[in-house]
Amino acid sequence: MDKIEFLTEKAAQIRRDLLKMIVNAGTGHTAGSLSNTDIMTVLFYEVMDIKVDDPDWDDRDRFILSKGHSVESYYTILADKGYFDKEELNTFCQYKSRLIGHPNNKVPGVEMNTGALGHGLAIAAGMAKAAKMSKKNYKVYTLMGDGELAEGSVWEAALAASHFKLDNLVGIIDRNNLQITDNTEKVMGLEPLAEKWKSFGWEIIEVDGHNYQELINAFTKSSEIKGRPTLILANTIKGKGVSFMENKAEWHHGLPSEEELAQALEELSSKGEVI
């Protein structure tokens, strides 16, 4: 099995597992987790230097899920990687579970509690600055939502990251064009988005956020950039992989019925078998 085939099948598996987890819990942020699955699959299975048996390894790459409400893909990937037993996914959002509805650093593999939007980039910039000061070589990655970019703290952190020449920092935007109420351009216009980040001193790489080779190439290129941080603008489809969820704002935190789950799983099974 080649690399792209592996990632394709793995992402399909992650999507199936996270949907079952959401339906079992009776709650969750469905469509945003589906849109970021391919990005996170490439990061965790291909890009980041991590040790599952040593989650606190000092030289590990760091990942911050700034769009913390889309935690379902994150937990599912961590369980699949072996950070904790997959059976624990059945406790998602249940009483006394550590798998709460936003990233919880009591879960192995989770660096920081997130959920209040606009904080992830600032945290990641601080980690990247700490690496520079400590002469460490690890990279810091943070995944942001496009609706999140209305938060002023994002742009303060972007300015600081450029000022401190944090070339060990990679920001990723899950650019699915939708947020909880409507299209991002109706709620708070972002365009010209790439030019905005470029004006803040960032290297910009725009990709199809569901194309594994483009994502791999972008992360590879980010490691070659010197003297400035990199922003990967990943164009995605909210609800990706499930036909009746794609590009529909109501699935931001919509809960599939048992019949809808069965349809979704059937569609996703055609995109890759469990491995």
Rank of each mutant, 00 (worst) to 15 (best):
W251D: 00
A161Y: 06
E185L: 10
I180D: 14
V170I: 14
I225R: 01
R175N: 11
E246D: 04
A157G: 07
E246L: 03
K165I: 02
F164S: 05
G201C: 11
R175G: 10
K221M: 10
I173E: 02
I172Q: 04
K248N: 10
H210Y: 06
A158R: 04
G147M: 00
F164C: 04
H253N: 12
G189R: 12
W197D: 12
I204M: 11
T230Q: 06
N176P: 06
I225Y: 00
L215C: 02
N217M: 08
N247S: 12
G152C: 01
L166M: 11
T236W: 02
L261C: 07
K196V: 14
V242L: 04
G227I: 04
V242H: 00
S257H: 01
I237W: 01
S243E: 11
E224K: 15
K226E: 14
A234L: 01
V187R: 13
N176Q: 02
Y212M: 10
A160M: 15
H210W: 11
S222N: 05
D146C: 04
E224T: 14
N211W: 04
G171T: 07
E148Y: 08
I173G: 08
D174M: 12
I173R: 03
L178Q: 09
I172W: 07
G201F: 12
I180W: 14
M188I: 14
L233I: 12
F200M: 12
G254F: 03
D208Y: 09
K221A: 12
Q213E: 15
L166S: 03
A234Q: 06
E203L: 01
L190F: 09
G152V: 07
H210S: 06
A262H: 12
G147W: 05
N247R: 13
E250M: 10
W155Q: 05
R228E: 10
T230V: 14
G147P: 02
K248A: 01
A157P: 05
L159I: 13
K248L: 04
G241H: 02
Q263A: 14
E246S: 04
A161W: 07
G171H: 11
E259Y: 01
L193Y: 04
M188P: 06
D146P: 06
L261H: 04
T181W: 15
A234D: 00
I204C: 07
E191M: 13
K240E: 01
N168D: 08
Q179M: 15
K196M: 11
H252P: 01
E156Q: 11
P192N: 12
D167Q: 09
E250V: 13
E195M: 14
F244T: 00
D146A: 01
R228T: 10
E151T: 08
S223W: 14
E224V: 02
E148S: 03
L169K: 06
I237P: 05
G189L: 10
G152L: 02
E260T: 00
Q179L: 10
A249S: 13
L193N: 09
